[in-house]
């Protein structure tokens, strides 16, 4: 309701403006202005007035001598959007109009989201990156632009993709490399670049191989160095489970990998079967025959 009344009042303002136009008071507004560029609005008529320019991005005013241009210096109006302009003489509007401020086409800043920050090696499409491209004033550049994505992995391999933005956004997916370590994920549009570091960690153990040595009344059971399927050492702390079966009784010991191997002492029972596993990977099985 309030809006309805207000917009009827708007119509009355329009009538006043039409009278002003008849009196030779007007202004010439550019249809479109590039964000941050200098421009002017020409006025006709005489006497002092105030020019108001307002939109959702900015609001500003200029004192104007009618008949002369109102100047806006470089950088004065820099937020993209649609702006209303109205020239007010005394307390009456005498001319109005509107225009658009559009983003500059030079990328100056990227908003680059890369995910995850840490992942196992050898994961297809495991890394995603999305970019929004902005001009120097933080306006989203919505005209299509090429964005280069490059993922440099510790092995020296580089994956590259070029994606054209749609409405200011571009995204891609990359595979994690075969070697553990920090990978650099770089997005570039024009002169603007942004880098994220992705930590590539070894994957799950690929194979498990253990050996058994008698140690007094015990058996010393130890794995070979535990590696993932790309040959990276599985990190210390990864749990390896040793299971001994003897006379229908089963006992399991969970051991963290230390210095690349997992080691445990188990009772030396002739006829016992010892197996090893980690996660979903099962290793070899040894039947202890008492050293024979």
């Amino acid at each position: 309701m309030r809006g309805g009344i207000s917009f009827v009042l708007g119509a009355l303002a329009l009538a006043a403006l039409q009278a002003s136009v008849a009196a030779g008071e007007s202004m010439t507004i550019p249809k479109q202005v590039t964000a941050g560029s200098a421009f002017s609005i020409q006025t006709t008529g005489s006497g002092p007035a105030v020019l108001y320019v307002a939109g959702p991005g900015q609001a500003l005013s200029r004192n104007v001598q009618m008949g002369e241009p109102a100047s806006f210096a470089s950088g004065a109006l820099h937020q993209a959007g649609h702006y209303l302009a109205v020239l007010v003489k005394g307390s009456s509007p005498v001319a109005d109009g509107s225009f658009d401020v559009v983003p500059a086409n030079q990328p100056a800043k990227l908003s680059f989201l890369a995910k995850p920050s840490r992942l196992p090696v050898g994961l297809r499409n495991g890394i995603s990156g999305s970019v929004y491209v902005f001009d120097a004033y933080g306006n989203l550049i919505t005209t299509p632009l090429p964005v280069s994505f490059a993922l440099s992995t510790p092995s020296g391999a580089v994956q590259k993709r070029v994606v054209t933005t749609q409405n200011g956004a571009a995204s891609t997916q990359m595979d994690s490399g075969a070697k553990e370590g920090a990978a650099k994920f770089i997005a570039q549009a024009g002169a603007a670049t942004s880098t994220r570091v992705i930590e590539q960690v070894p994957g799950d153990p690929c194979t498990l191989q253990m050996s058994v040595q008698p140690s007094g009344q015990q058996l010393s059971v130890q794995t070979a160095p535990v590696r993932d399927c790309s040959g990276n050492a599985v990190p210390d702390g990864t749990i390896v489970s040793f299971t001994e079966k003897y006379n229908g009784i089963q006992s399991t010991v969970d051991v963290p990998i230390k210095r690349g191997v997992a080691q445990v002492e188990m009772p030396a029972r002739p006829g016992a079967t010892i197996s090893v596993a980690s996660g979903v990977v099962a290793g070899n099985e040894i039947r202890w025959e008492g050293g024979r």
Binding site: L9, A11, A13, L17, Y52, L84, S91, P93
Partner: peptide, 11 residues
């Protein structure tokens, strides 16, 4: 609309 006080300057 741009308004100043209660007055509508442009709509």
């Amino acid at each position: 609309q741009i308004l100043k006080g209660g007055a509508v300057l442009t709509s």
